[in-house]
Amino acid sequence: MKPLPKPLQITVYQDVLCAWCYLTDLRLESLKQEFGDLIRWRVRPYPLRINDKRPTDKELRGLTEEVRRAQQEPEPVAKLLITELWQGGDAPRTSIPALAALEAARLQGPSARNHLARAMQRAALEQGVNVTRTDVIFELASRVGLNMGPFSAAFHSDDTRKLILDEHSMAASRGVRGVPTLVIGGRWMVCGLRDAAEYREHILTCLGKAHTPRSGSSERMVH
């Protein structure tokens, strides 16, 4: 009997505060169903704000403009995105706590992590809630049904923060400069929000034949 092919691994680097990552998640959903066991998906944290400090007025204007640009995308959910997260007076200082919560949830299974991620994205990007606050994190974790004892222990662990910082350093050393970024097969890097059809094309290429990046595209080989 011919052995089954080894699944293609796709690593998705993302930050829960990023509107582009939220839209990318939605576009990848149909591809996850289409390709099934042919692909092993790996979602990893890449904090856009590492240092714990208040965003400058210039940074807030830039972050607000990013959301406004995301609002123009064709998905119905894009029209639900709001800018209050960066304009409401309680802007996140760093995304580390939110990403630590997702890593703590992951210990209870990938679906637990995914449910919390979606709840945090909706709260932050559709309601303007600062999901890096501990009280908000624990409310959302309880709401999605996590086992709060183990979640609390993992969330407060220094090892969880170290894991996120180590992941960031490793990703940066491989050429990741922002999110969303997909690394396909450990070989090709696709940066920024793309159409679902384009993601599909990249996946099919890596599953079946050699791929030559398009001239002028933001695709490159992983170092």
Results as ranks from 00 to 15, higher is better:
residue 4 L to A: 15
residue 6 K to T: 14
residue 6 K to C: 01
residue 11 T to F: 06
residue 12 V to E: 02
residue 20 W to S: 11
residue 21 C to P: 06
residue 22 Y to D: 04
residue 23 L to D: 05
residue 23 L to H: 07
residue 25 D to H: 13
residue 28 L to D: 05
residue 30 S to Q: 13
residue 31 L to C: 05
residue 31 L to F: 00
residue 35 F to P: 06
residue 36 G to F: 10
residue 39 I to D: 05
residue 40 R to I: 08
residue 44 R to L: 14
residue 45 P to Y: 06
residue 45 P to H: 07
residue 46 Y to C: 07
residue 47 P to N: 05
residue 49 R to N: 07
residue 54 R to I: 09
residue 55 P to I: 12
residue 56 T to K: 01
residue 61 R to A: 15
residue 62 G to L: 08
residue 67 V to W: 01
residue 69 R to Y: 01
residue 75 E to A: 11
residue 77 V to I: 15
residue 80 L to F: 02
residue 99 L to A: 02
residue 99 L to I: 08
residue 100 A to F: 00
residue 100 A to T: 12
residue 101 A to V: 11
residue 102 L to H: 09
residue 105 A to D: 07
residue 106 R to T: 06
residue 108 Q to R: 12
residue 109 G to Q: 09
residue 110 P to K: 13
residue 111 S to C: 03
residue 115 H to F: 07
residue 117 A to Y: 06
residue 118 R to T: 11
residue 119 A to H: 01
residue 119 A to S: 13
residue 123 A to F: 03
residue 126 E to D: 04
residue 127 Q to W: 02
residue 128 G to H: 04
residue 130 N to C: 07
residue 136 V to P: 02
residue 154 A to V: 03
residue 156 H to K: 09
residue 156 H to N: 11
residue 157 S to K: 06
residue 162 K to N: 11
residue 163 L to I: 09
residue 166 D to L: 07
residue 167 E to G: 00
residue 168 H to E: 08
residue 170 M to S: 09
residue 171 A to K: 05
residue 175 G to F: 05
residue 180 P to T: 08
residue 184 I to T: 06
residue 187 R to Y: 13
residue 188 W to F: 14
residue 189 M to Y: 04
residue 189 M to P: 05
residue 193 L to M: 10
residue 196 A to P: 04
residue 197 A to I: 05
residue 202 H to F: 15
residue 204 L to Y: 03
residue 208 G to E: 13
residue 209 K to C: 06
residue 209 K to Y: 09
residue 212 T to L: 13
residue 212 T to S: 13
residue 221 M to K: 12
